[in-house]
Design a protein around this nucleic acid. Structure first.
Lengths: 151, 151
DNA sequence: CACAATTTAGTTGTGTACAATTAACCTTAC
DNA sequence: GTAAGGTTAATTGTACACAACTAAATTGTG
């Protein structure tokens, strides 16, 4: 009874969900200045990260990798296209799918982001192995929660 | 040189930032169904969490607790007000500040959220102590990153 | 008192997130 | 072949986030 949810009023700072929410936004903010000098936003950077890994992605490939739907990706990709960083082409064998690929400008941007990423990693105050341990713990939580939602 | 940033192409799933970003959104999604039955969104729930802790908050108090600015909070509080969950009153001694407080309906909502919170906590697959350990690790990262930005 | 600097919310504009819907295209069953 | 059902991306509408700006009120200083 002492551990009854109603008897222990939940505090904002005690919530794992808020820790993740506020920390994610803090890291996004840490990326903001460096990325804005490259002309891109943080979600755009994440999409580019995926494209630097795999030269060609369909919109749904990107959606699966980032867990974002076309309502988010369509306008985001339109902005990346108008920035000249990616190009979109309808697949000839299936006119429904749109293949997104990097332009040369988009490819060239990869090396510029390494310094920004390094600065943010340093700002965490963690060693490389500590970063990886924490990342794995957080990913495990994500996978559990996602599996629970899907069920 | 093997660890040079340019020579080790960064992958999306290897990034702590993406782990935090995607996990935060997954947990928000896990809260969505339960909270929508109570008529509120996840950011609104976070604001209410703070108000259940402290009966009265100014807008800037809430902004400091949540790291959100008035551009986010003003419309959010307007929606909570139109839902009848909070009320806003100008402080008589300082007409600039707006004191936000809970209505009875807003107070009554607290107990209803406990079950939603418990379900999401269970979906993480972690014990209570594991949740707390992870929360503290994530908060430490946040505090480091925020301190680094402010400098 | 006067008045510049600061504080506080609110507003505006851009860019995500996400649910719900739409439109075009593909596939399958018949 | 064609109609039904499924897939894919785009669109629409609501709600955050956040930068930049505005307006009103307070404070500090001479």
């Amino acid at each position: 009874m002492a551990t009854d949810a109603a008897s222990t009023p939940a505090k904002l700072e005690d919530q794992l969900c808020f820790a993740l929410y506020s920390t994610s936004r803090a890291i996004t903010a840490a990326y903001r200045e460096g990325l804005s000098q490259l002309g891109i936003t943080y979600p755009q950077y994440l999409v580019l990260l995926r494209l630097w890994e795999r030269k060609k992605c369909t919109v749904s490939d990107l959606g699966a990798a980032l867990a974002l739907d076309s309502g988010t990706l369509s306008p985001l990709l339109k902005r990346l296209e108008s920035l000249g960083l990616v190009q979109k082409v309808r697949a000839p064998n299936d006119e429904r799918t749109v293949v997104v690929s990097l332009t040369q400008t988009g490819k060239d941007l990869e090396s510029d982001t390494a310094k920004v990423r390094h600065l943010v990693e340093c700002s965490t105050g963690l060693s490389e192995s500590e970063i990886n341990d924490l990342r794995e713990s957080v990913q495990t939580v994500r996978d559990h929660v996602v599996a629970h939602i899907t069920v």
